[in-house]
Amino acid sequence: MENIMTDSERGPQVVVVTGAGSGLGRAMSVALLDAGHHVVLVGRNRSTLEETAAGRGHADIAVADVTSDRSVCSLFATVVERFGRLDVLVNNAGTFGPAASVDNLDVDAWNTTVAVNLTGVFLCAREAMRIMKAQDPRGGRIINNGSISAHTPRPSSAAYTATKHGVSGLTKSISLDGRAFDICCTQIDIGNAATDMTSGIGHAVLQPDGSTRAEPTFDPRHVADTIVHLVDLPLDVTVPTLTIMANRMPYVGRG
């Protein structure tokens, strides 16, 4: 039987965070670094990754494109070369995609959204699982950033909503395929965390009834604290899904 890391053996973990250069990815990465973990900050822009690292000794910067098979394979090969193992993958990189109804949705914009939000999650999870299965002690944790839209869409969000529903199916498949190898997978669905990406929500956003109004938001540090808690769990504990959102935001029925 393969070895699995016990609670007493757990110390600083090796964590890969995609989309680490801004927003939730930055908040998650900083919280994990402050908790003492080794964090590989992944993104396409080195300067924003350096801002996230802010000179912290346990931060490693990796410029990569999650939509590229070659880039993702190179990224994870570098992680193994540098650290010898991988304990956690946080699949955070994502894009809102086009704001358009299905009949007005450009196919190139659709394909770009799918590439980032779904194919990118798959490529990173595939490489992470390969490493986690083979390492000793084996196992690890994969955390996928879903969305409230994985359950209930906003108007004119077909591409984004479809990809986040796809992440739900992928998360379940990772959980099923990985559990015999001590690989846990969580989907965290986040609603209205206050970041640059969601800045418009706090001012005015289209509602299902055609009106436009501001919605409540909440501090991203609460998402970051949740990620740290998930990372600190032993591998005999899994959290399949978790929703964290601003109180009073429209959710059920988007009303």
Rank of each mutant, 00 (worst) to 15 (best):
residue 83 F to I: 09
residue 116 V to F: 03
residue 83 F to M: 09
residue 27 A to D: 05
residue 118 L to R: 02
residue 18 T to V: 06
residue 78 T to K: 15
residue 144 N to A: 05
residue 211 S to P: 11
residue 155 P to L: 05
residue 181 F to I: 03
residue 188 I to V: 14
residue 255 G to F: 09
residue 247 N to A: 15
residue 124 C to G: 08
residue 204 A to R: 11
residue 21 G to M: 04
residue 199 S to L: 07
residue 123 L to M: 05
residue 172 K to G: 11
residue 5 M to W: 00
residue 243 T to L: 10
residue 139 G to S: 07
residue 81 E to A: 15
residue 180 A to W: 05
residue 55 G to Y: 06
residue 123 L to T: 06
residue 143 I to Q: 03
residue 71 S to Y: 02
residue 20 A to Y: 14
residue 246 A to E: 10
residue 177 D to A: 11
residue 194 A to T: 11
residue 213 R to S: 12
residue 11 G to E: 13
residue 47 S to L: 13
residue 135 Q to T: 13
residue 27 A to T: 11
residue 136 D to F: 04
residue 103 D to M: 12
residue 61 I to Q: 00
residue 11 G to H: 12
residue 235 L to A: 10
residue 199 S to I: 08
residue 231 V to N: 01
residue 160 Y to A: 02
residue 153 P to L: 04
residue 34 D to F: 00
residue 14 V to Q: 05
residue 76 F to P: 01
residue 142 I to G: 04
residue 45 N to A: 13
residue 49 L to E: 02
residue 12 P to G: 14
residue 150 A to E: 07
residue 157 S to R: 11
residue 137 P to S: 07
residue 151 H to F: 08
residue 192 N to S: 13
residue 254 R to W: 09
residue 161 T to I: 07
residue 54 A to P: 01
residue 237 V to N: 01
residue 130 R to Y: 07
residue 115 A to N: 01
residue 168 S to R: 14
residue 185 C to S: 10
residue 150 A to L: 02
residue 224 A to W: 06
residue 178 G to W: 04
residue 130 R to A: 12
residue 233 L to C: 02
residue 2 E to W: 05
residue 129 M to T: 12
residue 135 Q to I: 05
residue 160 Y to V: 02
residue 214 A to Y: 01
residue 200 G to D: 12
residue 192 N to F: 10
residue 123 L to P: 03
residue 88 V to G: 02
residue 2 E to G: 07
residue 53 A to L: 09
residue 174 I to D: 15
residue 47 S to K: 12
residue 226 T to V: 01
residue 10 R to Y: 03
residue 163 T to E: 11
residue 115 A to F: 06
residue 40 V to E: 09
residue 228 V to Q: 11
residue 127 E to F: 05
residue 33 L to A: 08
residue 116 V to Q: 09
residue 92 N to C: 07
residue 131 I to W: 03
residue 87 D to Y: 10
residue 61 I to C: 09
residue 216 P to N: 01
residue 154 R to I: 07
residue 49 L to D: 11
residue 3 N to E: 10
residue 3 N to I: 03
residue 197 M to N: 03
residue 171 T to P: 08
residue 181 F to N: 10
residue 83 F to P: 10
residue 78 T to C: 07
residue 111 N to M: 09
residue 78 T to A: 13
residue 24 L to M: 11
residue 68 S to K: 13
residue 210 G to Q: 02
residue 26 R to L: 13
residue 129 M to V: 05
residue 151 H to T: 11
residue 168 S to D: 14
residue 35 A to C: 12
residue 48 T to L: 05
residue 16 V to I: 12
residue 146 G to D: 06
residue 33 L to T: 07
residue 209 D to I: 08
residue 253 G to H: 13
residue 109 A to W: 00
residue 236 D to F: 04
residue 65 D to R: 01
residue 23 G to D: 10
residue 145 N to D: 10
residue 200 G to Y: 09
residue 236 D to E: 13
residue 187 Q to N: 14
residue 220 P to G: 01
residue 138 R to N: 04
residue 14 V to P: 01
residue 248 R to H: 15
residue 119 T to G: 08
residue 214 A to C: 10
residue 112 T to G: 03
residue 105 L to P: 01
residue 78 T to Y: 07
residue 17 V to D: 10
residue 80 V to L: 03
residue 239 V to C: 04
residue 54 A to I: 09
residue 68 S to L: 09
residue 39 V to Q: 06
residue 252 V to Q: 09
residue 127 E to P: 01
residue 152 T to W: 03
residue 147 S to L: 00
residue 231 V to P: 03
residue 24 L to K: 02
residue 28 M to G: 05
residue 99 A to K: 15
residue 185 C to N: 09
residue 125 A to W: 09
residue 71 S to R: 05
residue 57 G to L: 08
